[in-house]
């Protein structure tokens, strides 16, 4: 089961994800990422603390969000990585290049600053 929710907080688009983000469930989020890039969203925070499992397709969608937003001069910050998804981010060495924060509040502070 995978779910996501898009909210606006203090001028930042917040995507809150939960459940297993994998090839079987990533379709809806993929559409959302395309929609966000069409909206020319420039400040995005992705809340990942409730993501229990992620696979390469799931990572691909998050990377796509990151690349599309950056291509428009925006930025994406990730928050709350834990467990298996954290391991995958580490394995892919994404932890070195992406902006990762322990909590959503910290990500929001960075994005607003």
């Amino acid at each position: 089961m995978f779910q996501f929710e898009r909210t606006e907080r203090e001028g930042v688009t917040v995507l809150t994800l939960s459940g297993n983000l994998d090839a079987a469930t990533a379709g809806g989020l993929k559409q959302e990422v395309i929609a966000l890039s069409e909206l020319k969203t420039t400040r995005v925070a992705v809340e990942l603390s409730k993501i229990t499992l992620i696979d390469s397709t799931g990572v691909g969608v998050l990377i796509s969000l990151f690349k599309r937003t950056r291509a428009q001069g925006g930025q994406v910050h990730f928050a709350g990585l834990t467990g298996q998804p954290k391991e995958i981010f580490r394995l892919l060495r994404l932890d070195r290049s992406l902006d990762l924060h322990p909590t959503l509040d910290e990500a929001l502070t960075k994005l607003k600053g």
Partner: peptide, 12 residues
């Protein structure tokens, strides 16, 4: 010898 996955960052 580890770096970021290919195809994500220009400046990797």
């Amino acid at each position: 010898g580890s770096g970021t996955a290919i195809g994500i960052f220009d400046e990797a």
